[in-house]
């Protein structure tokens, strides 16, 4: 396939693969945790970007798919005793199904109304889960440690989770690239620029938007299962944390919405910065303030994000940075 020869595809893949392999040398568990967070952010931000960056719909509650996938996956593993690698697709399919059911209705809303509705969906889901006893209600669920035996002990289980995440992250990037370069993606970008004009040109906007929504929900559903399996505990507050949703928006904006590489760089940079701030004596307590100021500066002065800005400034880079 000719796509593999495009730097716009292999550059982000290479960056992610390199980072993913790093902890394997020397079996470094703490580095693995750091990279896990980073990979997860990359994959979640890239998924969000398909709806936000390509289609122009601001999803403030994208985390609902992560949480839903997480809960269902956790339930399948801990209560039903199924294998993790079976639970992961269940989480993804559940999230994608929710998006499919909601999509045609919610995506009729535009602009701020859509953003508000996505917040509402996340909050409604969180409130619902709190009331569902089989999912542990307000206190959530814990994973019984004996479950890890099936995977050859806790260490093996964690590595398995890690590699599964790495594969999914690479997959997200490939999908993100292929969507962008496809006829379908062009239709999405037409919708982003002017939905009514796109429809007049023949773009079946309701179907295209719903498809984008489903894709951008599927991956968070998969990843939710991995994350909460790794954590061994799931609670409504951590599964449906609106704040994480907004952080993902920030990552996409940082790197450049609508680009393939942007969310990758944005997520990596954001997590690195967060890590630095959290461990620094000076900023330990004020990391939120620093992040806020940074976000404000970017929104006000470089709204296209790093990759968008580079592409705009230096035309020759456009082939390299998609």
């Amino acid at each position: 396939m000719s796509a593999w020869r495009q730097p716009g595809l292999w550059l982000p893949l290479l960056l992610v693969a390199a980072a993913a392999i790093w902890p394997a040398f020397g079996n470094n568990a703490s580095l693995r945790e750091t990279i896990f967070t980073m990979l997860m952010s990359v994959a979640l931000a890239s998924s969000l970007n398909i709806l936000l960056g390509y289609t122009g719909y601001v999803n403030f509650g994208s985390i609902v798919f992560f949480g839903l996938g997480g809960y269902l996956g956790f339930y399948t593993v801990s209560a039903l005793g199924w294998h993790l690698l079976l639970a992961v697709p269940i989480g993804g399919v559940a999230a994608a199904t929710l998006a499919l059911l909601l999509g045609s209705a919610v995506l009729r809303l535009r602009g701020a109304y859509f953003a508000l509705a996505t917040i509402g969906i996340n909050e409604a889901m969180k409130a619902l889960v709190i009331n569902l006893d089989f999912l542990g209600g307000p206190t959530g669920m814990n994973l019984n440690f004996s479950i890890y035996q099936e995977y050859g002990g806790p260490a093996q289980a964690l590595w398995l989770t890690y590699w599964a995440l790495a594969v999914i992250t690479l997959l997200v990037i490939v999908v993100s690239y292929l969507v962008k370069k496809s006829k379908f993606g062009l239709g999405l970008m037409a919708i982003r620029e002017d939905e009514d004009a796109a429809e007049v040109m023949g773009v079946v906007a309701p179907r295209a938007k719903t498809t984008a929504y489903v894709i951008s929900a599927f991956f968070p559903g998969l990843i939710g299962v991995l994350f909460f399996f790794k954590n061994g505990i799931i609670e409504p507050e951590s599964a449906f944390r609106l704040h994480l949703s907004v952080e993902l928006l920030v990552m996409v904006m940082l790197g450049g919405a609508g680009t393939v590489l942007g969310p990758v760089l944005g997520a990596a940079f954001y997590q690195r910065l967060r890590g630095l701030l959290l461990t620094s004596e000076l900023f330990k307590n004020t990391q939120l303030v620093v992040a806020g100021v940074l976000l404000l500066l970017i929104v006000l002065f470089i709204p296209a994000g790093a990759v968008g800005w580079l592409r705009h400034r230096f035309a020759p880079l456009r082939r390299l940075l998609e």
Partner: peptide, 25 residues
Amino acid sequence: VLNAPHLASLLSTFAVNMIIIGAGT
């Protein structure tokens, strides 16, 4: 960001949110 796409004002006001909450905490 008044005339920019919706996302811009959502994020700029959210940035203020982070700053207040961060400092307030």
